[in-house]
Design a protein around this nucleic acid. Structure first.
Length: 594
RNA sequence: GGGGACGUAGUUCAGUUGGUUAGAACGCUGCCCUGUCACGGCAGAGGUCGCGGGUUCGAGUCCCGUCGUCCCCGCCA
C-alpha cells in the first residue's frame, strides 16, 4: 500500500477529458482515478480518468525522477493528482478525445489507494447486472453510465427551462399520502402516531395536480418520483420518475403543443432533431392498421383484414372470429423450422389458427390451397399486396373480450416480432405519435363490469356523451397517449370538470353514492367549488432518457436502480428492522406460510 | 402467481457419456523493459463448481428442493 499525500493547496485546472491541442504548453493540475497504467520501466504511462474523460500522463524517470518513483506505486482506481505540462503528441491517439496531447508530470500526489475492483472499469460492460448493481459506484465510473447520467441531467434541465418559459410552476406534492383503491398496488408506510393507519407513496400526483388547478395555479409541472408495487420489467422500476403536468382552460392541441416543445428540446439535448407537430392517430385506426395501441411507425408492414377471403372455408377450418394478415418482406425463404416457431409464437399469443403463404416468382404456395384453392390463395396475395419473396402470415382467434378483435392484436404482435427478426426496424428514426380516441371503458374480465380504461376523471368526447348509458363500449375519452418508436412514453387527458358528468361516470362504474364518498369524497368536494376545465399529461422520463440514450433497460439511466425483485443489491434493501421500530409503529410481522 | 434462460477463479466463460490433480481469457502479484495507449516479455498466486439434500464405488455433470440475476405473460399508465 502506498502512503498517501495530502491534496494541499492544489487546485484542479480542468477535466482530463477536456484537454485539447489548444492546451499545449499549459501548466495543468489534473485529479482523478487511475484508469490504466502502462509501466515500461523508465517511462510510465497513466491514463487518468475523471468525469470529463481520459488523458494520458507521462512519468519520465529522467525528466522527473521523484514523480516517476511515486508513479510506480500507482494501481488501478487509485486517486491521484498530477501537476505537469501539456505537450503535443508526436503520435496522436485518435481513439481518445484528448489524444492530440499528453501531460508530462512534474509532481504526483497519491490521494488514495483502492482495492482491486471486482471488475475492470472500462467502457464495455464485462460484468453481470448483479455485480454491476452490487458495486454500482464502480459501475457508474464507466463512460457509458456517465454519459447516460449527463444526458438525463441535460434532458431534465431542458424540460424545466421549456416549461418555465411557457409559464408553468414547478410545485411539489406530498410523498406521504393516502391510498386510493383504483390502479396499482400501493407502497404503504405505517403511521407511528396513528397505529393501524398507513400512508401510501404516490402512484402519481394525479389528484394533487387536479387540485392545484382547482386552486387556480393555472399551469403546474413536476419532475416527480412515483411508486407502484407491481412486478417489474426492463422498462419498469418500483420507483420511477415522471414529468407530470396540468394546465387550466386547455385545448387538447394546447397540451400537445407544450409536450411537443418539451420533447423537441429534450431530443435536441440528445443530439436528435425531431419535427413538429407529431402525427396523430385514432385508437381504432391504430388497432386496425397495426394491431396495437402504441404502433411503431419506423416501418410499414400494416395489417390486412382478410376475414372475407376465408368465408367459404370457415366450417372446414373451424374458424372463429376474424382473420388478419401481416406481410413479412423477404421471409418467403423461411425454413420449416422457422415457420413452426412462428406457429408456436402465435399459439402462445392466443391464436386459434396460423396460416402462411409463401410468395415467389413462380407464384404462391400455401397449405391453404387445399381448402381455399389456388385462386383463393391468389386473392389473399392480392389483398395483402404481397410481392415475390414475401411471406404472408394470417391469424385467426376467437373473441374473448367483447368488442376486442383478438386476431388483430395477435397479428400486431407478430408484426413486431417479424420486423425485429427480419431486421426491418431502422435505427436513428424517431417516430412520435399521439394516440387519441381511446375507449372510456373496457370490460373487466375479472370484475365482470365496465371499468375505467384510464382513471375515472378522464373526460369524454362531447359527441359520445349521449351514448354513455346506451352504448358505453362506444364512448371515446378525451385521453391521449404519446408514443415513440412503439414505446408508450406517457398518457394524459382533458379531465371531467362537471359534477353532473362525473356522477354519471361513477354510476356506470357501479359505484354507489356511499362508495364514491368513501373513495373520492375530498376530491368530489373540491370539484364543487368552481373547478376550471383542465387537463394534462404524465410522461415516464426514465423511458424517455433510455430511448434517447439508446438503452434497452431503464436501469441504465437510473443511478441506483433495483433488480426485477425490487431489491437494491448495493444497500441491501429492503431489510429487516429492529423490533423496537416495529413496536413503535404498532406493526407485528406474521410468519409467512399461511 | 406462471413460463423461460443463467449461476464454475476477482470478472466473463469453457468443462465431452458421471471417472485421476476442474481449464481459458482478462484481471491480480513479482521481476525485466524509455513511446506505450487493450503495451510487451518471464515467473506466480488464485476454486465451498450458488446453497441444502439425494442417487452412485465415484457428481461441476444425474434427481429433488432452495436462493439469486435477467427476459417474458399475468399484473402495472
Amino acid at each position: 500500500m502506498a502512503t498517501l499525500d495530502l491534496l494541499g493547496d492544489w487546485k484542479r485546472t480542468q477535466y482530463a477529458g477536456d484537454l485539447r491541442a489548444g492546451d499545449a504548453d499549459k501548466d495543468v493540475v489534473l485529479m482523478g482515478w487511475v484508469h490504466r497504467r502502462r509501466d515500461l520501466g523508465n517511462i510510465i504511462f497513466i491514463d487518468l480518468r475523471d468525469r470529463g474523460g481520459i488523458a494520458q500522463i507521462v512519468f519520465n524517470k529522467e525528466l522527473a525522477p521523484a514523480a516517476h518513483a511515486r508513479a510506480e506505486e500507482l494501481r488501478a482506481e487509485y486517486v491521484m493528482a498530477v501537476h505537469g505540462r501539456v505537450s503535443r503528441r508526436q503520435k496522436p491517439n485518435p481513439e481518445l478525445a484528448s489524444g492530440e496531447v499528453e501531460v508530462f508530470a512534474s509532481e504526483l500526489r497519491i490521494l488514495n489507494t483502492a482495492k482491486t475492483p471486482p471488475f475492470v472499469v472500462e467502457d464495455e460492460v464485462n460484468a453481470s447486472d448483479e455485480t454491476r448493481l452490487h458495486y454500482r459506484y464502480l459501475d457508474l465510473r464507466r463512460s457509458r453510465p456517465q454519459r447516460n447520467i449527463a444526458l438525463r441531467h441535460r434532458i431534465f434541465l431542458e424540460i424545466r427551462r421549456t416549461l418555465d418559459g411557457l409559464g408553468f410552476y414547478e410545485i411539489e406534492t406530498p410523498m406521504l399520502t393516502r391510498s386510493t383503491p383504483e390502479g396499482a398496488r400501493d407502497y404503504l408506510v405505517p403511521s407511528r402516531i396513528h397505529h393501524g393507519q398507513f400512508y401510501a407513496l404516490p402512484q402519481s400526483p394525479q389528484m394533487f395536480k387536479q387540485l392545484l388547478m382547482i386552486a387556480g395555479l393555472d399551469r403546474y409541472f413536476q419532475i416527480v418520483r412515483c411508486f407502484r408495487d407491481e412486478d417489474l420489467r426492463a422498462d419498469r422500476q418500483p420507483e420511477f420518475t415522471q414529468l407530470d403536468l396540468e394546465m387550466s382552460f386547455p385545448t387538447q392541441e394546447a397540451i400537445f403543443g407544450v409536450i411537443e416543445q418539451v420533447m423537441v428540446r429534450a431530443c435536441a439535448a440528445a443530439g436528435i432533431e425531431v419535427k413538429t407537430p407529431f402525427r396523430q392517430m385514432e385508437y381504432r385506426e391504430a388497432i386496425g392498421r397495426y394491431g396495437i395501441d402504441k404502433p411503431d411507425l419506423r416501418f410499414g408492414m400494416e395489417l390486412h383484414e382478410i376475414t372475407e377471403n376465408f368465408a367459404a372455408a370457415r366450417e372446414k377450418l373451424h374458424l372463429e372470429g376474424s382473420v388478419h394478415a401481416v406481410v413479412a418482406p423477404g421471409a418467403a425463404a423461411f425454413s420449416r423450422k422457422q415457420l413452426d416457431e412462428l406457429g408456436e409464437q402465435a399459439k402462445g399469443l392466443g391464436a386459434r389458427g396460423l396460416y402462411t403463404i409463401k410468395v415467389t416468382t413462380e407464384g404462391a404456395s400455401s397449405p391453404l390451397e387445399k381448402t381455399l384453392g389456388a385462386a383463393g390463395v391468389q386473392n389473399i396475395v392480392a389483398a395483402a399486396g404481397a410481392r415475390a419473396g414475401d411471406l404472408i402470415v394470417a391469424v385467426s382467434a376467437a373473441e374473448q373480450i367483447p368488442g376486442t378483435d383478438a386476431a388483430t392484436l395477435i397479428a400486431g404482435q407478430l408484426r413486431l416480432a417479424l420486423a425485429e427478426r427480419l431486421n426491418l426496424v431502422p435505427k436513428n428514426r424517431w417516430e412520435f405519435l399521439w394516440l387519441t380516441g381511446f375507449p372510456l371503458f373496457e370490460w373487466g374480465l375479472s370484475e365482470k363490469r365496465w371499468v375505467a380504461a384510464q382513471h375515472p376523471f378522464t373526460g369524454i368526447r362531447e359527441e359520445d356523451v349521449h351514448k354513455l348509458e346506451s352504448a358505453p363500449q362506444e364512448v371515446r375519452s378525451k385521453g391521449y397517449d404519446l408514443v415513440l418508436n412503439g414505446s408508450e412514453l406517457g398518457s394524459g387527458s382533458i379531465r371531467i370538470h362537471s359534477q353532473e358528468l362525473q356522477a354519471r361516470v361513477f354510476a356506470l362504474l357501479g359505484l354507489s353514492e356511499e362508495q364514491r364518498r368513501h373513495r373520492f369524497g375530498f376530491f368530489l368536494d373540491a370539484l364543487t367549488y368552481g373547478t376550471p376545465p383542465h387537463g394534462g399529461i404524465a410522461l415516464g422520463l426514465d423511458r424517455v432518457v433510455a430511448l434517447l440514450a439508446g438503452e434497452k433497460s431503464i436501469r441504465e439511466v437510473i443511478a441506483f436502480a433495483k433488480t426485477t425483485a425490487a431489491q437494491d443489491l448495493m444497500m441491501d434493501a429492503p431489510a429487516e428492522v429492529e423490533p423496537e421500530q416495529l413496536e413503535e409503529l404498532g406493526v407485528a410481522i406474521r410468519q409467512s406460510g399461511g
